[in-house]
Design a protein around this nucleic acid. Structure first.
Length: 596
RNA sequence: GGGGUCGUAGUUCAGCUGGUUAGAACGCCGGCCUGUCACGCCGGAGGUCGCGAGUUCGAGUCUCGUCGGCCCCGCCA
């Protein structure tokens, strides 16, 4: 029987006619299987042809097993010699102990002595070798994703994803939550991200939108009395991509009624504990609570990485009393002086300090001032020794420390030093492996949008304002705090949510503050406002980025590593070539016409 | 929308200030080998240097454009 690499299927080599029915997964064979006759099915991972003896590593989703073809069955050995990588085969044989154990693989104590071989399918030479780590660009991996997914690591990731979704469903169900589906064809929304639009054939000129999240539906479910809802659900946002952002992504969406914030946090902390148990991670509870204002002031970020043991300090008062004209002028002009004290970093070279300065400038700061106390004061800023003494005393710095200062507009200074803080190398490996969760709370309800020249919701328009700030809604909207919270893990925003508005009148006031006209409000949210008037329970919820969570569980730095078929950063699917053109007829049916 | 970076055998890369025949490793093909597991040894094939213009006596190398990968800013309620 000829074996070729055309990719077409071939006949069975031994022509026994009996079907080869798999008895075991390759990766599950152990010493306990010794003596058993087994049938394995899988892909040829590698062959080692020694002349009169041929070794074949056979791979399936559970792992590798070594199959041996010996010369006492010459015909079989001849067949085995023609096997090539990625052929799909079935093997009948007997499990026996190896003469030399391979400690690198779990099945390394045993091997299978083959007495029947069937080639189910040949394979062309693959464009890259299916092995870890991949010796292929991400571009090639994405084009041949079906081959990339055969790699043991990708198989582990996809399995981990399954286990994570199972853990979520078990945990939520155990806590009384129902998984309830919501529409994928929904309404476009005036707020938030760009929508993916779906034209309606029946109503020409009208569009569905793919949901950015099931927000209104899940709140509606609360009004319907379902009380505890969750869903592992696909969401769509037509915005630019990143390592942690895909146009379609998966959320763990949760909503509850009649529960206060603390109870809700506890529930979610338990969910995180259940998830990270999958990776053997230890989760310390309760999680730290960090008001937004404090997070910005200390870490220059609303998603601080708390593994980095550095905090920022405000030195505006001290800087104002210094003799430095630059500092005094900046502060007099409404700027602030922020400082990051880095213990033990006084030995940093001039070149390293310049690089930090470049980084600060790239983030919009006018410059970075560094101060160290080694053989007298050294600094990028000329000041009197008394000024240095004053700053050092305010910081409580040691002789070996390094102080990094930015005097600028408050936001700019915090952002620049916050970014330097975030990127500070973690020499301590144990610290790097820690799981530093924190709840960032009390976000502002609104933020100013420069392009649209109006306030927009920082979270979303259904977020409840803090009751103490209700009076500011119309007068000083930027001062209103929201009952919104994010869950942050090691500098990654893994989830965000809020206590919702359940009062129709308050909801109307918020829409008004956002600059929505009565007409827009009625059109887009009319049904929802009416629903709120039929007895809406107090409720709130959260949505977690499932891809990001699985990414962190897998120890990866891109969600593409845990999504079976991801898109590139320019939103292409390199395997299917989507998106693609449609026929004129399709457009016509939808009442659409392409513009030149 | 903007910035950075990369694109050279099937793959990962090297290729100096522009200069004769574009290299290595892995993979692939053929041969040898009875205990390999990064098998080994011998031999071989394999290139539109992403694509298109331009500069030049001469372009993988320089310039511009374009397509694509990755990273970042904006954006992402």
């Amino acid at each position: 029987m000829r074996i070729n690499r055309s990719g077409t299927s071939m006949n069975n080599s031994t022509e026994t006619g009996t079907p080869l029915k798999r008895t075991d997964y390759c990766g599950e064979l152990r010493a306990a299987h010794e003596g058993r006759e087994v049938v394995l099915c899988g892909w040829v991972h590698k062959t080692r042809d020694m002349g009169h003896i041929v070794f074949v590593d056979l791979r399936d989703r559970e792992g590798l097993a070594q199959v041996v073809f010996q010369s006492d069955r010459p015909e079989l050995a001849e067949e085995a010699k023609r096997l090539r990588n990625e052929f799909v085969v079935g093997v009948r044989g007997r499990v026996r102990r190896r003469s030399a154990v391979n400690k690198d693989i779990p099945t390394g104590e045993v091997e299978v002595e083959a007495f029947e071989l069937r080639v189910f399918a040949a394979s062309k030479v693959p464009p890259f070798v299916v092995a870890d780590p991949p010796q292929a660009s991400e571009e090639l991996r994405l084009k041949y994703r079906y081959l990339d997914l055969r790699r043991p690591k990708m198989q582990r990731h996809i399995r981990l994803r399954h286990e994570a979704s199972l853990a979520v469903r078990n945990y939520m169900s155990r806590n009384g939550f129902f998984e309830i589906e919501t529409p994928i064809l929904a309404n476009p929304t005036p707020e938030g991200a760009r929508d993916y639009l779906v034209p309606s054939r029946i109503y020409k000129g009208r569009f569905y939108a793919l949901p950015q999240s099931p927000q209104q539906f899940k709140q509606t479910l609360m009004i319907s009395g379902f009380d505890r809802y969750f869903q592992i659900v696909r969401c769509f946002r037509d915005e630019d991509l990143r390592a942690d952002r895909q146009p379609e992504f998966t959320q763990i969406d949760i909503e509850t009624s009649f529960i206060d914030r603390e109870e809700f946090f506890t529930l979610n902390e338990g969910l995180m504990e259940a998830l990270f148990a999958l990776a053997g991670g230890k989760v310390e509870r309760p999680f730290r609570r960090l008001p937004y204002a404090e997070a910005m002031e200390k870490y220059g970020s609303d998603k601080p990485d708390l593994r980095v043991p550095l905090e920022m300090r405000d030195l505006t008062a001290v800087g104002g009393e210094s003799s430095s004209e630059i500092l005094k002028a900046t502060i007099a002009g409404g700027g602030e002086l922020k400082c990051l004290l880095v213990p033990g970093a006084g030995a940093l070279s001039r070149g390293q300090l310049d690089k930090l300065g470049d980084k600060a400038k790239a983030l919009g700061a006018k410059g970075l001032v560094w101060i160290k106390k080694q053989d007298g004061w050294k600094s990028s800023l000329k000041m009197a020794d008394a000024d240095f003494e004053m700053i050092w005393a305010a910081l409580g710095g040691a002789d070996t420390d390094l102080a990094l200062l930015v005097a600028d507009k408050r936001d700019t200074a915090l952002k620049a030093l916050g970014e330097i803080r975030r990127a500070w190398p973690m020499e301590d490996a144990a610290r790097k492996d820690r799981l530093e969760f924190c709840w960032v709370t009390d976000f502002p309800l609104f933020e100013w949008n420069k392009e649209e020249k109006r306030f927009v919701s920082m979270h979303h328009p259904f977020t409840s304002p803090h009751e103490d700030d209700l009076g500011l809604l119309e007068t000083e909207p930027d001062k209103v705090r929201a009952k919104a919270y994010d869950l942050v893990l090691n500098g990654v925003e893994v989830g965000g949510g809020s206590i919702r508005i359940h009062d129709m009148d308050l909801q109307r006031r918020v829409f008004k503050s956002l600059g929505l006209t009565d007409k827009e409000t009625e059109e887009k949210f009319g049904y929802f406002l009416e629903a709120l008037s039929f007895g809406a329970p107090p409720h709130g919820g959260i949505a977690f980025g499932f891809d990001r969570l699985v990414m962190l569980l897998a120890g990866e730095e891109s969600i593409r590593e845990v999504i079976p078929f991801p898109k590139t950063t320019s939103a292409l699917d390199l395997m299917t070539n989507s998106p693609s053109a449609v026929t004129e007829r399709q457009l016509e049916e939808l009442g659409l016409k392409l513009r030149g």
